[in-house]
């Protein structure tokens, strides 16, 4: 995966999307092969990686600021510095003013924004997103997809997004990787050649539709048991 790009991974259930993401994030150790970032291998959880889960996983007993600052706290960053960095991160995801709110006082979308802020607070070079918006309503999801693009532009982070939503994948990503189920294989890598910044009005554009069609075709092929397996690239 090229640096500073957004890669979306799509695939049916059981194709190992989440597993792949956890391998990249160092939460799982690969049986064979190696994960590298900028040439340096990932061994175990890695500070260069920010991980965003399907659920926000905020600590309910902490406010937004302390949740976002949590990774810095664990790393032993002194309080004044971690507060400053957490505030930056919170502002970046558009949650400014909600620093003192508790998770239960926030909407689902705001909670996921806080989770993204937390993933970004250590300034990671790779941001891993595991279907982060799948539990949200369509409108919120669309808005957050746009935000993701803005974040990417402002931070220059490589983003790997796992999703089962083809429209989301094509709208957000520079490249869509299609996985097949049991055992998981990369079926195809479909580039999305749509210039940025993209906006919602473009989501119905022909370019997106073509990519989406291609992805859909590849996914359909994974259902075919005779489809020749391809080794992971």
């Amino acid at each position: 995966m090229p640096a500073r790009s957004i890669v979306a991974i799509v695939g049916p259930n059981g194709s190992g999307k989440s597993t792949l993401l956890r391998l990249i994030g160092g939460l799982l150790t690969p049986d064979a092969g190696e994960i590298r970032i900028d040439g340096r291998p990932v061994e175990g959880a890695d500070a260069r990686i920010g991980f965003c889960f399907q659920e926000p996983r905020l600590l309910p007993w902490r406010d937004v600021l302390d949740n976002v600052a949590f990774p810095l706290e664990l790393a032993g960053v002194p309080r004044p510095e971690r507060v400053a960095r957490a505030r930056e991160s919170i502002a970046l995801v558009g949650l400014g003013g909600f620093e003192r709110a508790r998770p239960h006082q926030l909407s689902g979308g705001m909670r996921q924004r806080a989770a993204v802020a937390r993933a970004l607070v250590r300034g990671p070079s790779v941001l891993l997103l595991d279907e982060p918006f799948s539990a949200l309503d369509a409108l919120t999801r669309e808005r957050l997809d746009l935000e993701l693009q803005r974040l990417w532009q402002e931070t220059g982070t490589t983003i790997v997004l796992v999703t089962h939503d083809i429209a989301e994948a094509t709208f957000v990503a520079d490249k869509v990787v299609v996985l097949s189920p049991r055992p998981g294989h990369v079926v195809a890598e479909v580039p999305v050649d749509v210039p940025r910044p993209r906006d919602i009005s473009m989501s119905t554009a022909a370019a997106f539709s073509e990519v989406a069609e291609a992805v859909r075709a590849h996914l359909a092929a994974t259902d075919d048991a005779d489809a020749p397996p391809r080794a992971v690239a």
Binding site: G44, A45, I49, E73
Partner: peptide, 25 residues
């Protein structure tokens, strides 16, 4: 379990997971 995984993804030590996550939760 998600919180524990979060802790691991943030490279929390065993002690940090206990003190800052498990006991609090």
């Amino acid at each position: 379990r998600g919180l524990l995984e979060l802790g691991r993804s943030l490279r929390a030590t065993r002690w940090q997971i206990m003190a800052k996550l498990e006991i609090s939760a």
